[in-house]
Structures are given as structure tokens and as C-alpha cells.
Amino acid sequence: MQSKFEGRYAKNSQMLSVDEVAHLHLKKVCVIGCGGLGGYIIEMLGRIGVGHLTVIDGDVFDVSNLNRQLLSTEYGIGISKAEAAGTRLKTINSEIKVTAHTVFVDEKNVNALIQGHDVIVDALDSIESRKWVAKACTELSIPFVHGAIAGWYGQVSTIFPGDNTLEKLYHAQCGKGDEVQLGNPSFTPALVASIQVSEVIKLLIDRGDVLRNQVMHIDLLCNEINVFDL
């Protein structure tokens, strides 16, 4: 790979081989949501050099996002989250392709938005929209890396087409989780996003273990990180 920033990925070796870094550059990943989780996920996928990133969010930044959303700034209140993600990616890695969609994912548009990607990453904030995306991922045979946060707590799971993981993670019929009462701080999204990105990279290079039919449950209040079989 010719690069005017030769050595950009030097600090990824030896954990990633030269071939794996080149392989990541050929891959296309879609991140749905550019808020708390999405801001960190997009940053990490861009820096590691995933070749084409699609970022989707119909929302604009609000003052209440400043406590945790990496892409939000005091100067950017009211601007599109997806556009901010696209702008950020261009400044940290101009050698990758970026497609930004300022649109909310729904049952009707989801298939068209995610088609053609190698992995879809969940940075959504509603359980219902996660279920739409998981269904579309099954229809299009794309793996889906789920992540969610609520206050001190978070969870990650990697869902392959046809797995009914979300039904096991959300037995109760509810649109939102405990984040409605707890809110979300600065550190939980960063941690959960890191684990999601690690799952994405392992899927893309086909190496290591992923959280398929498992959930990693994180409790930062009690310092408990557990992986449960589902």
C-alpha cells in the first residue's frame, strides 16, 4: 500500500501482520449511530485503517451530549452527528473512504443502508431499532456487533446471521433500558466501544475468539466483567 503517511500503522505490528493491515484496508464497515458509542467506534476503526466506513445518524448534537460523545464540541451544537463523524475521519485518516448518511435507520431504509458491508456495528440507542438492524443483517448475511450502555453498565455480543441473540438479551418488551434513569457517563461508552471494535477487527481478519452466542456483561461499579453463554 503506497502512503504519504508511511509508518502510519507501524505501531499495529506485531499484533496485526502487514497482510492483515492491508486486508483491513479492503473492508467496508457500517457504524449505525454517531453518539456515545459511535464516536469512539468510528475513531478507532478510522485509526486502525478499515478501508471504507459508512456512518449513519439522523440526529444533531445537543448540549447534553458534551459529557460523553467524542464527536460533540461546544462549537458543534446543532450540527449533524454523521457529518461530524465524516469530517473527523478525514482529519485522522485521509486514506480511507467515508460515507456519511444523516438519516435515522428504520425498518424501511435499513436494508438499503447496510447492504454491501462486511460488518455492521451497533451504536444505536433504542432496542427496537437494534432489532430492525439485526433482522436486516440476517437477511443480508452480515455479522452484527452489538453494544449497549446504561450508566456503570454495558454489554457486548457478536451476532451472526440467523442467531437470535437479541431476543435472549432483551426478554422483556421494552423500548429503552436502565440508561433512561441512569444516563451515561464519559467512560462507559469508551470501554464498550473498544470491545466492539476489537470484535469487528477479529471478524475482519478471521482470527481470535468472538462473543458469538455469548454476552460480555460489564459492571464498572462493582468491577465485574463476565462472559455468559446464551
Binding site: 449511530g33 453518539g35 456515545g36 458509542l37 459511535g38 451497533d122 451504536a123 444505536l124 440507542d125 433504542s126 432496542i127 437494534r130 453494544g147 449497549a148 450502555i149 446504561a150 453498565y153 454495558g154 454489554q155 432483551y170 422483556a172 421494552c174 423500548g175 429503552k176 433500558g177 436502565d178 440508561e179 451515561n184 461508552p189 456483561h217 455468559f228
Partner: peptide
């Protein structure tokens, strides 16, 4: 029996 509440933010 293990029970977890919903975590849904992002």
C-alpha cells in the same frame, strides 16, 4: 437463576 435489567443506550 441470574437476572439482568435492560441495557439499551448507545
Amino acid at each position: 437463576v441470574s437476572i439482568f435489567p435492560p441495557v439499551g443506550g448507545g
